[in-house]
């Protein structure tokens, strides 16, 4: 089966009178069904440009983006997609509930289902008190959460979110991360962009790192975290009564050290991996050239 989302050799250059900006250069990747894919890069890296190309808001100069194998220039592909734009702007004369109803109608959902889903999401995202207020009166964070609600109201198999956590308070960040993980549990595919490394570390299966429009690396997050172990912190006591000692052991020596401690009657109180974290990896890739 074709991938929920696939880009092949996508390039985009912005041309204005004086400047040419290569916003995206030959970017190719595929997101597998049921995975959470983090699209990580500093400001101005080309994340939003890539996402706009996927959503057919702008046209790529070269290359194609496909959703389940269909070019994303076709409007019907967006039936399977829930999209949250960067700093979403929603018709501010409507109320939150009205906007969700409108989006549900566009997706052709039955009335009953729209009401049910919208109540559910407004409750989940803590927007219920504001549901009947004009969007005009929403704060940035509320707008972001309503944008997320409208993206998932029709329960799409693919979510494309441009900086879903930006502008949120810590509590809401957790809420949104949980929501993303939950979507994955329900078998959905999530593609989201961010410039915050910890967002990726916690929730993503894979991460693509983009800089200056070039996709530098696509890595699985778990092995990266595993590979990243540089040493183990071992805390032990030589006898029941003696004071605790702490040593750092390299991964290669771990087994021999453990044997050495336990064979002399010592007890291991703590064993903790010391990692070179994703941040270092990220910075390493970003600074490569």
């Amino acid at each position: 089966m074709s991938h929920p989302l696939e880009l092949s050799s996508v390039s985009k250059q912005y041309v204005s009178r004086k400047h040419r900006v290569d916003a995206v250069r030959e970017v190719s990747f595929a997101v597998a069904a049921g995975e959470i894919f983090g699209f990580l890069g500093p400001n101005g890296a080309g994340k939003s440009t890539t996402i706009k190309i996927i959503m057919n808001l702008i046209r790529a100069d070269r290359g194609t983006a496909t959703i389940f194998g269909t070019p994303s220039t076709k409007a019907e592909t967006r039936r399977h997609v829930g999209f949250l734009p960067e700093n979403p702007a929603l018709y501010d004369y409507m109320t939150g509930a009205e906007y969700l109803r409108f989006v549900g109608n566009v997706h052709g959902m039955p009335k009953q289902r729209i009401r049910q889903r919208s109540d559910e999401l407004l409750m989940l995202l803590d927007l219920l008190p504001a549901a009947k207020r004009a969007i005009r009166s929403y704060s940035k964070g509320m707008l972001q959460k309503l944008g997320l609600a409208q993206a998932i109201i029709h329960d799409p198999p693919v979510l494309i979110l441009d900086e879903p956590m930006s502008g949120l308070d810590p509590l809401s960040r957790v809420l949104v991360k949980e929501l993303i993980v939950n979507e994955k549990k329900n078998g959905k595919t999530v593609f989201f962009s961010t410039h915050i490394i910890s967002d990726v570390e916690r929730v993503c299966d894979r991460v693509g790192i983009i800089r200056n429009g070039i996709l530098k690396a696509v890595k699985e997050v778990a092995p990266l975290l595993r590979e990243g172990i540089e040493a183990y912190r071992v805390r032990f006591a030589e006898h029941e009564s003696s004071a605790e000692q702490e040593i750092m052991v390299s991964p290669d020596d771990l087994t021999t050290q453990m044997v050495a401690i336990t064979s002399t009657g010592g007890t291991i109180r703590l064993l903790e991996p010391v990692r070179k974290n994703l941040e270092d990896f990220f910075l390493h890739i970003i600074r490569e050239d």
Binding site: L57, A75, E76, R78, F83, P85, A89, L90, V103
Partner: peptide, 15 residues
């Protein structure tokens, strides 16, 4: 101008 179009055109609507 106000980028409402991004959200609207992200829906399965033909332009």
């Amino acid at each position: 101008d106000r980028r409402y179009a991004y959200s609207i055109l992200g829906l399965p609507l033909r332009r």
